[in-house]
Design a protein around this nucleic acid. Structure first.
Length: 219
DNA sequence: ACATTAAAGGATC
DNA sequence: GATCCTTTAATGT
């Protein structure tokens, strides 16, 4: 496998020349992790982590020690930028959902990189914006009281994103459950309830909205 | 309303 | 075939 894979696939580095990518690659550390491996915990994260292949979940633990999923990283995405700006990670955990390969970049190396290539910060800002946008949406979900309404608004949001009445769930039901702050069992029941009411149709991870008006009215 | 526990049925590697 | 995921039912908060 090529050594500079990370720099090549990361959107924030996309506009750089081949020579620059090689330079960046030289200062990143490459490592493989296995499924289930804990990659960082609060106060144990001082590097920028770039995912090259596989997938990684970012979550926090709620009061009862239950996982609250924040997002699932895809190849090309990164996490840990807060540490680079001296902000301590107080709550985030990361574990590998599959065997994955990733690259890490220390705080000082990254700061050197930023001063050499200021244009990278533009892309960082764009990335922050979308990340914050996703978190804001998740916060909005928790304004609704019942799991059923969270699920309904989540599905409707997906439908807007994917511009279709038929949507693909971006992660497994087990993960969607913790994203919504519930359990797989409850999620399974709520999905079946919505099916029974003929509001949706579900095949594996594909959901077709049959009645969006009534979905919106759930509370 | 939802979580927990246990058990069984599917899916996946 | 083992392991992980999903569903179902019984019971508890």
């Amino acid at each position: 496998m090529k050594q500079h894979i990370c720099a090549e696939i990361v959107p924030i580095f996309k506009q750089l020349s081949e020579a620059d990518l090689l330079k960046i690659s030289a200062i990143t550390q490459h490592k493989k992790v296995t499924k289930g491996e804990l990659l960082f915990t609060p106060d144990n994260q001082n590097e920028l982590m770039i995912l090259a292949s596989g997938s990684i979940k970012i979550y926090q633990l709620n009061k009862n020690g239950k996982e609250q999923l924040l997002r699932v990283m895809q190849p090309g995405e990164f996490e840990g930028e807060k540490a680079l700006y001296g902000i301590e990670n107080q709550s985030l955990y990361a574990t590998a959902l599959k065997d994955s390969t990733l690259c890490t970049l220390s705080k000082t190396k990254f700061q050197e990189l930023l001063s050499e290539y200021p244009e990278i910060s533009q892309h960082l800002l764009a990335d922050f914006a979308t990340k914050i946008g996703m978190l804001e949406r998740q916060v909005e979900l928790f304004n609704s009281e019942s799991v059923e309404s969270k699920l309904a608004t989540y599905i409707l949001d997906l439908s807007v994103d994917q511009r279709s009445q038929t949507v693909e769930l971006p992660f497994k039901l087990k993960e969607l459950a913790t994203y919504l702050g519930t359990t797989p069992e409850t999620l399974s029941r709520k999905l079946r309830d919505l099916e029974d009411k003929k509001l949706i149709l579900k095949k594996h991870l594909t959901i077709t909205i049959l009645n969006s008006d009534e979905l919106e009215d759930i509370f």
